[in-house]
Design a protein around this nucleic acid. Structure first.
Length: 204
DNA sequence: TTCGTGATAGAG
DNA sequence: TCTATCACGAAG
């Protein structure tokens, strides 16, 4: 079966568009694969939650790499985070936050020490552990090798919900988290109201 | 709710 | 050198 790799041109668009459109597609990593059910967009400009705001190394990464490159970093002394570089009219990253496991499930269970499929990849740190993604994949071009790529799903259209990003303190109000509506594989359930709508309703 | 964990960056 | 700050996850 031939895989339809998502090519570089996909990542030459707006980061927010890419984040939304990656939901429902597949992440393929060696013998493991999963449907992407949750992403977040980060913008290189005017987004204080983006690494570019506080890390010169992130700004240098954007300069040095092509769209579709893996941006991987270590978080809280324990977890690897997988992002993909986007360079369109504006630059940024898409953080891959949760997957619905498709194949290599036994291997994921072993790596995670968890049996419940819903909890195997329900978080950015969990999915990198399940897929064995580490900094050795940093800067890898994810648009060339069919064993490390994003691939088109053969499924129908997905119903995507936008809400606020998880775990960010700065620029927290942007609705740049995208999930499959009703998915049981996401990291945190969708909050019904965005911050701005709460502010509006509570000020009435 | 709390806490471990280590890379990164900026201040002193 | 020291310190603050995390795009987190597991246990309680």
């Amino acid at each position: 079966m031939r895989r339809r790799i998502i090519r570089t041109t996909f990542f030459r668009r707006e980061p927010i568009i890419c984040a939304r459109e990656l939901v429902g597609e597949e992440l393929v990593w060696g013998t493991c694969a999963g449907t992407i059910v949750e992403t977040e967009a980060y913008l290189a400009e005017d987004d204080e939650a983006c690494h570019t705001f506080s890390r010169p190394s992130a700004r240098a990464f954007i300069e040095r790499n092509k769209p579709g490159a893996a941006y991987i970093y270590f978080s809280y002394g324990a977890h690897w985070m997988l992002n993909v570089l986007v360079k369109g009219a504006s630059n940024g990253f898409v953080l891959i936050r949760a997957l619905q496991p498709l194949s290599g499930i036994e291997r994921m269970k072993k790596r995670r020490g968890v049996d419940d499929e819903r909890r195997l990849c329900s978080g950015p740190g969990k999915l990198t552990k399940a897929f064995d993604i580490t900094n050795r994949h940093h800067q890898m071009n994810l648009c060339l090798d069919p064993r490390h790529c994003f691939a088109r799903s053969r499924g129908q259209d997905v119903d995507v919900v936008a809400d606020e990003r998880i775990g960010v303190t700065r620029s927290a109000h942007h609705p740049w988290r995208f999930t499959v509506r009703g998915s049981k594989y996401v990291s945190v359930p969708v909050r019904s109201l965005t911050r701005s709508s709460i502010d509006r309703s509570s000020s009435l």
